[in-house]
Design a binder for these strands. Structure first.
Lengths: 113, 113
DNA sequence: CAATCAGTTCAATAATTGTTTAACTCTTTA
DNA sequence: TAAAGAGTTAAACAATTATTGAACTGATTG
């Protein structure tokens, strides 16, 4: 992940609706969610959703696959991993920001020297 | 870290100049860098720098301390840790995105199930 | 094949964000 | 205390991003 791509990814996530959309897709798992379902859950219009999904897709954080007349969107976990990796490597002073298994539990290395 | 604050932090970092500014401040260490030095390194005007530092500061990613007629800005590592923690906990499907010691080395858990 | 459904694209507009120049504040130095 | 340095604030403008409603495309169903 380079600076340019990181900025694009950060920009994609730097908006309430899109961050929430991404979170929902992560929760939904690999199969993802149909665009319509997402629109309902986010309570936004189809064009608005399309607009936001486009920026998430272009950032590579999300993929869509057509199935019949539905389009299922799903989160690209690897892309988020890359982003977190970039932030950790470039913006955390060289120390680990998110120790393994940090999901909810307190971090072991809370502060960096 | 909550969604609102995460969006604010992401937005602060979602811009070339600011991401680079933050990276420079991380590199500079706890003492930080005088605003003027930052402006030179980023090759932007003082008002432009002020504008960008304001968003970083308001996001809590950066602090300024006045010293004589200089203002030294420094990165708040804890804030970045919180952000990475938020992304890991909310947007990585519950698995760790950035295993401890991920600084440069390959991740052990590359893909999540 | 006409009608409907799911979603996107387009065009217009509103709102936010970034840049620039000028004026200002605060601190130091002569 | 006047002048100069470091940085911020303000105001005007440009550019980008977000929202809305209408029209469009492609797939299914009657």
């Amino acid at each position: 992940m380079n600076r340019i791509k990181a900025v694009k990814s950060l920009a994609a996530l730097a908006q309430e609706t899109r961050l929430e959309a991404f979170r929902l897709l992560v929760q939904a798992g690999p199969d993802g969610l149909a665009a319509g379902d997402l629109a309902v859950q986010l309570d936004i219009s189809p064009p608005a959703l399309s607009f936001h999904l486009r920026s998430l897709t272009q950032a590579g954080l999300v993929r869509g696959r057509q199935d019949g007349r539905f389009i299922y969107y799903s989160a690209d976990y690897g892309a988020m991993q890359s982003l977190v990796g970039f932030l950790t490597e470039n913006c955390c002073g060289g120390a680990a920001c998110a120790p393994a298994g940090a999901s909810g539990r307190k971090s072991i290395a809370r502060r960096m020297s």
